[in-house]
Simulated scan of single mutants.
Amino acid sequence: MVLLGVVANLLFALPAVFAPNAVISLVGGAPVAEPVWPAFAAWLLILLSLFYLPAAFDPFHYRAIAVLTVLARFAGVVFFTLLHPQFPLFALIDLFFGVTQGVLLLLLRRAEKTA
């Protein structure tokens, strides 16, 4: 599920690095005068997604990263719900991945304790 979330991030972020106003328009926003900042935010999302990868492949060894991966999703929900509600799609995507990854991480922890 973490890998699927990385793919979802990249589907938005990669095009936004090169054509930020096109992606902003696609999700219902108004084009910006300084597209360098949304492009940079997309670049940071790509980098953040790369930090998710160790936890995706070995959540036992990278326990802290696995937890931070889930918390980062919920931070996205808060950001796009409270600060930028004009982009509900991003809040919903982060909510979906935050809940599913959180539940799976809890189930994994339970399985680890019983094993």
Rank of each mutant, 00 (worst) to 15 (best):
V2Q: 11
G5T: 05
G5Q: 01
V7A: 15
V7T: 13
V7W: 10
N9F: 10
L11R: 09
F12M: 12
F12Y: 15
L14W: 08
L14Y: 09
A16Y: 05
V17H: 06
P20K: 04
P20Y: 02
N21Y: 04
N21M: 03
V23A: 09
V23Y: 06
I24A: 09
I24Q: 04
I24E: 05
S25L: 14
S25N: 14
L26S: 13
V27C: 12
V27I: 15
G28R: 11
G29E: 06
P31W: 08
P31K: 13
P35R: 05
V36S: 15
W37Y: 15
P38R: 08
P38I: 04
F40Y: 14
L45N: 14
I46F: 04
I46V: 15
L48K: 07
L48S: 10
S49V: 03
S49N: 01
Y52K: 11
L53D: 10
P54N: 04
A55M: 02
A55I: 01
A55P: 02
A56R: 03
D58E: 12
H61P: 07
H61T: 15
Y62W: 14
R63E: 13
R63A: 13
A64S: 11
A66I: 03
A66F: 07
V67G: 05
L71D: 03
L71I: 12
R73I: 04
R73N: 13
R73L: 08
A75W: 02
V77C: 00
V77T: 00
V78M: 03
T81P: 02
T81D: 03
L82C: 06
H84D: 09
H84N: 11
P85N: 09
Q86C: 00
Q86H: 03
F87E: 00
F87C: 01
L89I: 13
L89G: 11
L89R: 08
F90K: 02
F90M: 09
L92I: 08
I93T: 02
I93A: 07
I93L: 14
D94Y: 01
L95Q: 01
F96D: 02
F96L: 14
F97E: 01
F97W: 02
G98Y: 00
V99L: 12
G102N: 01
G102V: 01
G102K: 01
V103Q: 04
L104M: 12
L105H: 10
L106V: 15
L107A: 08
L107V: 08
L108W: 12
R109K: 12
R110W: 12
A111P: 02
K113P: 06
K113L: 15
T114V: 14
